[in-house]
């Protein structure tokens, strides 16, 4: 084997090449990071009048990718329909408050907590604001969480 010697010339040359490569990679990554503007109207999705939602029921909003649940005590939570296992769309099981993933059989309750694996994390939830008697869901900012907390439920 040849002996590996780094003299000044070799060092500067490799340093220059490395710098150039990093520059190229950096430019390319920044290029891929562009957010191509979608035709989004607003971050806030108007789900409807507060009075419309009955206590203890769950309402699917398929095209906006969330389920809105109103608890028995009147609180709201909007859980994402994107399964935390591998990203499939969970569906509401008929006659129950349970969400099931058709891909790999993960199940979640209405708060988004995992009932059965392979998913290991609760479903993301969306922040809710109330305005003029309407429920507005901030669909642009799903919140990742590792467990359900009471503070995630919004009251009027």
């Amino acid at each position: 084997m040849k002996k590996f010697i780094v003299d000044r010339r070799k060092f500067l040359r490799s340093f220059f090449y490395a710098l150039l490569s990093f520059q190229l990679i950096y430019v390319f990554v920044r290029l891929l990071k562009i957010k191509i503007p979608q035709n989004t109207q607003s971050d806030l999705y108007d789900a409807g009048d507060i009075s419309f939602f009955e206590n203890g029921k769950m309402y699917p909003f398929g095209s906006a990718h969330f389920f809105l649940h109103r608890f028995e005590d009147g609180g709201f939570i909007a859980v994402s329909s994107k399964c935390t296992h591998l990203g499939c769309a969970v569906q509401l099981k008929a006659d129950s408050l349970q969400l099931e993933c058709p891909c790999h059989a993960s199940a979640f309750n209405s708060k988004g907590e995992v009932l059965s694996p392979p998913a290991s994390r609760p479903l993301d939830y969306y922040p809710i604001v109330f305005k003029d008697g309407k429920v507005l869901v901030n669909i642009a900012h799903p919140v990742r969480r590792n467990k359900f907390e009471q503070a995630q439920i919004k009251y009027i």
């Binding site: 398929g62 095209s63 990718h65 329909s81 591998l86 499939c88 769309a89 993933c101 058709p102 891909c103 790999h104 392979p118 290991s120």
Partner: peptide, 25 residues
């Protein structure tokens, strides 16, 4: 994009990884 088929699979050559994920964190 709203309806996942049951079951949903990765391309066949990546199915080994998907299978692995069913058993190991």
């Amino acid at each position: 994009p709203l309806v996942s088929p049951n079951p949903s699979r990765a391309p066949w050559y990546f199915m080994g990884f998907q299978e692995l994920l069913m058993h190991i964190h």
